[in-house]
Each structure stands twice: as structure tokens, then as C-alpha cells.
Amino acid sequence: MKKLFILLFALVPALGFAAGGHFTLDKANNDIRDKESLQRGAQTYMNYCFACHSTQYQRYERVATDLDIPIDLMRENLMFDSEAVVGDLMVNNMPAEDAAKWFGVAPPDLTLTARVRGVDWLYTYLRSFYEDPSRPFGVNNVIFPSVGMPHVLQELQGVPKPVFETQVIDGQEQQVVVGVKADSTGELSQSEYDDTVRDLVNFLEYAGDPVQVERENLGIWVLLFLVLFTGVSYLLYKEYWRDIH
């Protein structure tokens, strides 16, 4: 299901990620080796994020190959530009200059977001939107106060209500939002929504470092070779110095 219309509202001046205050991040516990998770994450990303956020350092064909997605399915379900070919970079059709002129800033590319922010930050951020009528899009974020984008996954989660806690700040008691609790209007249960976000974060981690698994696998063989080489070198050393001593 291609839900691009949801993303057309995701542009505002403060769209770029900004740091929040002090907060405890939830653990994403994603698995970059889980290809089924990566496939689901790619689907969620293309349906809910891609209309505004490109991954311009990735190619459709590379994603399809790495995630074992047949090219035909990639074209049919994950390529929304009718003129794009599988070898193209994953860039959406929203002109950056026009977006900056219309909204003050162009939507950030998300290819390297997981590497810059970390997967735990992304996982917590996407689960920390809450209803706030004072904001332009009616939502705010626990770890990103005054967030400048809508909660594009709200139809999956439902309407997230803020959870308040009384805290003493500068000698005065204040109600502070410390969490969220979604109502029952979403398409997914809370655990299902958490899994969907985890898959999305998993895909973004892959997008930021697509050779991570290959590099780690190669690293194991390199270490084994070094251990073997060290052993052989030691035996040669012993043999060479045996007659001398």
C-alpha cells in the first residue's frame, strides 16, 4: 500500500533533527543480519518516509540485491517514480531548492542518520510523539521538543497521549511529559508498532553502512588468518634460532 499522501505534510522549517534535553534512550535491539526485518523496514520507509526524505547514497538495485528482494517486486512496490530505473540512486522528486523556499529548509537525507544519531535515538524518537494541540501539526516529541514534523506513523500507532510527571524545576513543581501512551485507534498493537519501528530503524542502520555485515564476516576470517600466521611465524622463529642457540 503506497501511502505517499501522508508524507506530503512532513515539511516544516524545523524539519531537521535537533538534540533534545537529557533523556534515557530505549534499546532498539535491532538485528542488521535479519533480512526479513530489513525488507519490512524498507517497505515502511518507502511508504511513510521516502516522499520527503531521500536516501541519496543508496541505489534501488543495491537494496534489492542485499535484501533479497526480486527486482520485479522492487519496481512494483518500492519504486514510486515511474521514470526511475533500478540502477538509480534513491532520490525522491521533491526539489530541494523549492522545499527550502517553501518551508525554510529542505528535508534532510536519511542515509546516514542512524550512523549520526544512533539506532537507539531513532527508535526512541519514533516512539515518542504525543498529541499537542499547540503545535502546528498537533504533535510534539518527548526527546525532541517542538518537533517540526507530523507523526507520520500515527495511523499505525494510534493517537499517542502524553504521560505527565510532576518534577521540581528551578524550585517550582511543573508537569513534565515523560512518556506516551497510545489509544486503541491505530492499526497495530503497541508491541506490533514497536516491532515496525524496530524494522524501520534496522533498515536505516543498513542504509548508512550497507557493507557492515560483509565487513564483520571478513573481519572474522582476517583475525583467524592472523592467529594462524602468528603460529606459523613462531614455529619458523623457533626453527631458525634452534641451531644458533
Rank of each mutant, 00 (worst) to 15 (best):
M1D: 06
K2R: 14
L8F: 08
F9G: 09
L11V: 14
G16P: 02
A18E: 13
A19R: 06
A19V: 07
G20L: 01
N30I: 11
D31P: 08
S37C: 03
L38I: 04
L38C: 04
A42Y: 14
M46G: 08
N47C: 02
F50S: 10
A51P: 01
H53A: 09
T55D: 01
Q56H: 10
Y57R: 12
R62D: 04
R62T: 02
R62Y: 03
R62Q: 00
P70H: 12
I71P: 05
N77A: 06
L78N: 09
F80L: 10
V85I: 08
D88W: 11
M90K: 05
P95S: 14
E97V: 15
K101H: 12
P107V: 01
P107K: 10
T113N: 10
V116E: 09
W121T: 08
Y123H: 14
L126S: 01
L126H: 03
S128E: 08
Y130W: 04
E131N: 03
G138D: 05
G138N: 03
G138Y: 00
I143P: 07
S146R: 15
S146V: 07
P150I: 02
P150K: 06
P150W: 05
V159E: 02
T166F: 08
T166I: 14
T166E: 15
V177K: 01
G179H: 02
A182D: 13
D183M: 06
S184R: 06
T185S: 15
G186P: 12
E187F: 05
V197A: 02
V197P: 03
V201W: 06
V211N: 14
V211Y: 12
Q212G: 00
E216G: 07
N217G: 09
N217C: 08
W221E: 04
W221R: 04
L224R: 11
F225L: 14
L228I: 13
L235D: 04
D243W: 10
